[in-house]
Design a binder for these strands. Structure first.
Lengths: 209, 209
DNA sequence: TCAGCAAGTGACTGAGCACTCACTAACTGA
DNA sequence: TCAGTTAGTGAGTGCTCAGTCACTTGCTGA
């Protein structure tokens, strides 16, 4: 007997399956046929819920965006120092990537880079949001004397984003062969140590010693 | 009149066109038809020189690899300090990426991530090579007292690779809207400053002051 | 100068895939 | 209970592409 569900429910199922499969097969290998199969529908049923495949990608981007925002907000809760909050936000992001490998897969996909402008804008916006959050925390860290004076908060954030993205690339291309959050936490420690406040005179002292 | 060239010459032309077009259209949008058009041949002629499209990708990877190795070697020439050589190698890499946008395009492509295992191995190998070079320079920097003692050369190299890759992502996704080598040079400066040697006691002095 | 080789072509094939459409049947509310 | 709504289907279309194949034609060396 044919099982019918509400459109809302099906949409969510389809987005879920797309997210999962995009991580497994990669966004360009992902066909509506495969998605339908995973959900237990025939292929044309997908188009009952999303008029174009692009609309499905938009829904996926929206889902990813809201999950990310939620995690970032949670990472900033608590009474940690600004640097501690940066750590929390970055680790939250890495854990999310580990749980949703579709995120780097889509970020590195041509689906995003050439085919689907809306998707590109959505992801670029997320990158900017992430950068903004880290940069704001860095600014507070600098004000609290936890950050070198010669390091602009924006630049500190770029370096931290680079850490996350470089790690994600290495993780993806190596076949996800290590624990992302763990390795990221370790490297972030080293990175933040290099960000710590150190007046110029200290360098002179070192040079003289 | 039909123009005939030697197979060797044509192969080089086809690889050149593929590299150029992969940067413009993206690796998955790139059809044999488009390549043939750029070279001035019909589509089946491509298969006269490369039995499968994958063979063409392999030739492209080989070309990229040899160009990279040459640049890295050149960057290490001269009598700069180890840190200076790291800077030279990184800037050389960024300039190459700027000249050959196909490199990040392929690095981020599904062509590499799921479709074409040989290509993935070739690029992963290049990443490892780059990491090795930077890590070796970092080890020499540490021996020369230019690098913090708590920072393993391998980890320093990971952070620097992250900088390069994060920058490449931002550059790609932003529509190549800034000067890669310039921005990279600036960030690398900030990064290397954080790598500079600083004994633990200095931090304690700071904390006490 | 001409035989043989190999670069190149025109016309196909077949697979993959997004998307369509007429139709069916499960649910819902009056 | 039954009419209207809408999730879902089966069969198909058209397009894009990698790859094939029989054939042609420019080039080279004996």
């Amino acid at each position: 007997m044919r099982i019918r569900k509400t459109a809302e429910h099906r949409k969510a199922e389809i987005v879920d399956a797309t997210l999962r499969l995009a991580g497994e097969l990669g966004p360009e290998r992902l066909t509506t046929e495969a998605i339908a199969g995973a959900v237990g529908l025939t292929q044309p049923a997908i188009f009952r819920h999303f008029p174009k495949k692009q609309a499905l990608w938009s829904a996926v981007a929206e889902r990813i965006g809201s999950v990310m925002e939620a995690r970032w907000a949670k990472g900033q809760q608590g009474d940690a120092t600004p640097l501690g909050q940066i750590r929390a936000v970055v680790v939250a992001q890495l854990q999310l990537i580990q749980k949703m490998p579709a995120i780097p897969a889509i970020l590195f996909s041509r689906e995003l880079h050439t085919r689907n402008q809306g998707l590109r804008e959505a992801f670029f916006g997320l990158l900017i949001r992430f950068h903004r959050i880290v940069a704001d925390l860095a600014a507070r860290a600098r004000a609290a004397g936890e950050l070198r004076g010669d390091l602009e908060p924006d630049d500190a954030a770029f370096l931290i984003l680079g850490l996350v993205q470089g790690l994600a690339i290495r993780w993806s291309i190596s076949g996800r062969s290590f624990d992302l959050a763990e390795e990221g936490s370790r490297l972030l420690d080293l990175q933040l140590r290099g960000f710590a406040d150190r007046p110029v005179r200290v360098r002179r002292e070192e040079a003289m010693s």
